[in-house]
Write a protein that binds this DNA or RNA. Structure first.
Length: 269
DNA sequence: CTGCGGTCCTGAAGGC
DNA sequence: TGCCTTCAGGACCGCA
């Protein structure tokens, strides 16, 4: 599940490789995953690559925006003429791809077909502030947690309140902050909000540094096919039955709102 | 308005 | 071996 660190890693890769490229053709293999008039993008060039939350978007020279949401199993893969293995794409999971004038191609692969690509006049982005944006402050976190009746774990996944966190980083951030995922938002004390704010920033920053998580059974890779490294640094995610990294208590897994939730029953209060 | 649960979708894994 | 069921989950939708 590509979340902020994975999408940020992809964004940085594409900024280095896509700016200025001219779109020759867009091939749509699965129509339900593409929204908009793809022909409007033909012969435009890529002006900028941006991200908000888990959405990555390309600003085109005709002022249109091509937005991508990878959902669970989406991948964005880039191949130039000189790329090794340039011939193994498109493959059976390719749903949409773009060919550029210089011979390079961008592939949108998505095994489960939950993701989408949209061509619109404005980028198709979530409402909440991005975790890396200056609008996301400790005061803001305090304010939004204080005005909901949700549990903290599902709350962190609400992209209309805070954009970028998914299941992996919600689990790890709550461990880092010593907070039990079943806590009600409203019961969190000021010092706990402070710790959670610091934890989110620490975990997200570290995950970006390691180029995201290529977890077991997950599809995420960089656009050149290489893997991220944060999966080797998971605090609790996918560590069910293993000892807590702080106190050796066995990590427990439960379901909250239908989502797998991992936590230490001793040190996450 | 909020919160919750069903739904989409494929492939891997487990049961018998 | 092979068939069937279960599970994974982001975000949209309909409902109370």
């Amino acid at each position: 599940m590509p979340e902020l660190p994975e999408v940020e890693t992809i964004k940085r890769f594409l900024q280095k490789n896509l700016i200025g490229k001219k779109i020759l053709v867009i091939k749509i293999l699965v129509h339900k995953q593409f929204h908009g008039m793809s022909e409007k993008a033909i012969n435009t060039s890529i002006k900028q690559v941006e991200r908000k939350g888990k959405v990555i978007y390309l600003e085109l020279s005709n002022k249109q925006f091509l937005s991508f949401h990878l959902k669970m199993t989406g991948q964005i893969l880039f191949r130039s003429i000189n790329s090794p293995n340039a011939n193994n794409l498109p493959n059976r999971h390719t749903r949409i791809f773009i060919e550029f004038k210089d011979g390079a191609s961008l592939f949108f692969n998505d095994l489960r077909m939950f993701g989408w690509v949209k061509l619109t006049d404005k980028p198709e982005v979530p409402k909440g502030p991005d975790v890396l944006n200056h609008e996301f402050t400790e005061t803001y976190l305090k304010q939004i947690t204080n005005s909901t009746n949700k549990l903290i774990k599902p709350f962190l996944l609400d992209q209309d309140k805070l954009a970028g966190i998914g299941n992996i980083y919600a689990n790890d951030s709550l461990w880092e902050a010593h907070i039990n995922p079943q806590r009600k938002c409203k019961t969190l004390k000021a010092v706990e909000i402070k710790n959670l704010y610091k934890a989110i920033n620490k975990i997200i920053t570290e995950a970006i540094k390691y180029k995201g998580s290529s977890a077991k059974d997950k599809m995420y890779v960089l656009p050149d096919g290489t893997r991220g490294g944060y999966q080797n640094r998971f605090r609790v995610y996918e560590r069910s039955g293993l000892p807590c990294l702080r106190d050796k208590t066995i990590i427990r897994t439960i379901k909250i709102g239908g989502r797998g939730t991992f936590y230490c029953p001793k040190c996450q209060i």
